[in-house]
Amino acid sequence: MTTSERSRSVLRFASPQYFYPLAGKLAPWFAALAVVLTLAGLWLGFFVAPTDATQGEVYRVIFIHVPAAWMSMFIYLVMAFWSAVGLVMNTRLSFVMSQALAPTGAIFCFLALWTGALWGKPTWGAYWVWDARLTSQLLLLFLYFGFIALTRAIEDPRRADRAGAIIALVGAVNVPIIYFSVNWWNTLHQGASVSLTKAPSMAATMLAGMLVMAIAAWMYTIAVVLWRVRPMILERERHTEWVGTVLEKELQAVAANKGGRA
């Protein structure tokens, strides 16, 4: 493939030089969508959705709890996906993507645990029960910590990329096994005193609020990851001409900003 052919194909966005400005242009739009959807979701959740018959008002935690839990699992899968792409196709950008995703995934994972604990206290009477879902979520958080710690501990970016990719894939293979084993363990040890089944019927407005919040979490994730990946790209590509141009522009923008304020 010649350079001109390459620059015309969609694949060119896999090259850092094209991806960097694209990410900068797209991120604010996703952020704006996230804000709008969050407001809509909160309005649905707090003012339209009715009081739950059995749980009262406290169930309203669900509008962040479930999206956070979904996001944390999904982000891990996306991380593993980019890691696999990076290892197979040898594209540097893929590794950077998976590393930019990890902190956000870990934050959502923690939030799912935190909101789960606050929800659990009034409904189960304890902040923490060793329920299968909660326990798997906790282990997922540890997997995130492992990935982040490993990629940060390695100085050489090439090695950090690949080592991170391997541990992300090993983790992804193990997630279903962990979930299965924790479920098994849970059914053996959990007494009948604590019933964790959610109310089977959910008002349509509750579901709508939850889904809107889930999409908002998606948009937020995309925006923040695009913002996080940009400086990472600059750092990796610091030897190239185009990064120099980008940095000069940045410098001018900062100078203009200062002049305007003075």
Binding site: V58, A68, L118
Partner: peptide, 16 residues
């Protein structure tokens, strides 16, 4: 007041 569950609901949202 959130039906008496203020600390749990708002605690979740604030931290998030």
């Amino acid at each position: 007041d959130m039906g008496g569950a203020a600390i749990f609901v708002w605690g979740s949202y604030a931290v998030t």
